[in-house]
Design a protein around this nucleic acid. Structure first.
Lengths: 161, 161
DNA sequence: ACGCTTTCTTGACAGGGTCAAGAGAAGTCG
DNA sequence: CGACTTCTCTTGACCCTGTCAAGAAAGCGT
């Protein structure tokens, strides 16, 4: 038995009550090494590059199992397919590029977030708040020299408050 | 509605640079009278109840045109089809029921939102912040007496910070 | 009323994801 | 170590939401 520090991934799976299989280890590996919040298809591609061939269905199954076990977090920006990240358990948000859909992490810079504790919840039992920032990624900023135009469906531009 | 000057909807359309048609008036009417954030299909059904028959495509077209003109706002909660609301121009957020997808408005109770001005934006040009609360609506609260269980993909439960 | 333009209808199509059944591994126990 | 049980993966069909395109129909300015 190799030392525990060699590869903690199998143990992570077992602790989560999941069986250790090649697809699962590969998905975990891909997500651990991707700050990019890949889509399921990107994950499938990366996984196949590591262990040969895996069905798309398996990837969906693995991701769902991981999400249910709390190993990964699924984010679904409007107009974009679901994306995944293995960074869980901390308070961070996401910023999504309007043009290309690229997604990055944004640290929650404040200790308290008054806006996230609404007084009027319409009778709902709130258990979670989710913040998504929208804008242009560095690449698309340079590319889109013309007017941003598509201001149409903006909930409320920053600065309007 | 035979009332003379009572209906401001045609004018709202003209001001937005849109032609006045029955489907558009009906969609506007439906949204004005729905605090429920209906989906496009629900809107189509309600519209047909008023003016007979309208193609699904027309509804999509109308909603897109309205969104582009700023007459309505489109929200796309994860795992739910797009929803629309005619309440625009103010700063409010949404709370979505995890079980049934019901959506309600949540007032932004604070004047300033520190969390919405991230210091580290990863080079993105942020133009908008979007907040979605997740929880259980009053109806589903009563129905789901058992354990909430599905805590898996929770970004960060309120109170954990 | 006329003609130009926008909008609606119809129908095909696509992306993303789910569902279901059976084959194949992982873990367990004797 | 080997059989057994259970969980996973593969395969293939299918669904939902939404988009694209072409032509018919209606709105609006003159």
């Amino acid at each position: 038995m190799p030392t525990a520090s060699a590869d903690p991934r199998p143990e992570r799976l077992r602790v989560a009550g999941l069986r250790v299989t090649a697809p699962r280890l590969a998905v975990l590996d891909v997500l651990d090494g991707s700050p990019e919040h890949p889509t399921s298809e990107q994950i499938a591609t990366a996984v196949r590059a590591r262990i040969g061939s895996v069905s798309t269905q398996a990837v969906y199954g693995v991701l769902d199992a991981f999400a249910a076990a709390g190993l990964v977090r699924r984010i679904e920006p409007a107009g974009s397919p679901a994306r995944y990240e293995s960074r869980v358990g901390d308070n961070h948000h996401h910023i999504v590029c309007r043009t290309c859909g690229a997604t990055a992490d944004v640290a929650c810079v404040v200790g308290a977030a008054p806006c996230l504790d609404p007084s009027d919840a319409a009778g709902f039992a709130i258990d979670q708040a989710e913040i998504t920032f929208w804008g242009l990624c560095p690449t698309c900023r340079g590319r889109t020299t013309a007017a941003p135009s598509g201001q149409g469906d903006a909930p409320w531009p920053i600065g309007d408050r």
